[in-house]
Design a protein around this nucleic acid. Sequence first.
DNA 1: AGGGCCATGTAACCTGTTACATGATTGA
DNA 2: TCAATCATGTAACAGGTTACATGGCCCT
Lengths: 189, 189
Amino acid sequence: MNLQFAILGMLAISPMNGYYLKKIFDKSVNYFWTASLSQIYRELNALEAKAYVSSAIQAQDDRPDKRVYSITDAGSAAFMAWLTHFPADLPTLKRDEFSLRIFFGARLGKDALISQFESFIAERKKIIAAMADDKEEITAVTRRVKAAAPRDKMCMRFITRRSQLTNALLISWAEDCIREIEQTPLEWE
Amino acid sequence: MNLQFAILGMLAISPMNGYYLKKIFDKSVNYFWTASLSQIYRELNALEAKAYVSSAIQAQDDRPDKRVYSITDAGSAAFMAWLTHFPADLPTLKRDEFSLRIFFGARLGKDALISQFESFIAERKKIIAAMADDKEEITAVTRRVKAAAPRDKMCMRFITRRSQLTNALLISWAEDCIREIEQTPLEWE
DNA sequence: AGGGCCATGTAACCTGTTACATGATTGA
DNA sequence: TCAATCATGTAACAGGTTACATGGCCCT
């Protein structure tokens, strides 16, 4: 259901086809919301069945034809209703495999445990780097799509900063954990 | 698949029934991994079909009979294989509805946006309080189940601290966002 | 008398992943 | 020439949610 609103939100900015939607997703909301192409196509069908979007084939010379989706009035209304109505409990689906592994981590050897934390740090650093790389492209994409109002930029800055802060925190948390493990007596095994 | 390993990990500590497993989940891994009762029952069936666990009915006088599950040798081996083999990319399913809402938040009025951040802060504070409440119960439960080795406690402390730090960070992030929204010129609407 | 806890499960449904199928164009 | 990108979709499967069904005990 939420993915449908995410799609509606994008289509409210500009009409696009499924393939391009996927690209936008990967470059913008990807840090807190993922979607696969097959999922996007499925949800676009569902949205069209509800008449929240309409589609039209657009022929192209050198590339395959594409089906461009536009949001309808009913779709806009549904999107705004969703956005305005803030749920009492926002359900956070929790499936953090790393925490799960660390929860049971005492059964691992000291070195194995430390190396898992090190992999975790490496991955977080990769994410930070990827975010920096994406940054220019995101602004380029959003600029092409629509001249974003200052408040649009502000909201995007909020969620970018959230990711940056969280990643930085997690790295220092993991470093502390490693230090603590290293300080435990050798009689671990 | 991962839920199966989470269940195996719990059963490796002590045999238990599905209902009690759910309680343990809610009081321990709940902050980074959730599971519903029907899911637990389903996965227990799947685990038994694979002979990773075995079960036996245990009669009780004043309460309904219960089916107590124990981990088998094959189950222990599978669990340790999973725990030891750290995946190159640990797939983080991302579905953070709050970030999604804020991403599209510029279409909301200033007050509505601020109040969504305030709800977010209130919820995070509730989680922190719930964690503090649970803390005693968790240690009581784990103590009843098994005399936890110091390194078990250390690993649990790691993930608890992670939650605490993250929550504290998110609250101060949200407070900063509110401050920034308040400082924007009045010509928002 | 009524609600909450103990206890187990099934069925339908929704959401997300992976694999398959097709095929032209473009750049290294 | 080979891989990547553009472009759309289906099918099967895996994982998670919600609703239903049952029923005794305990406490207020």
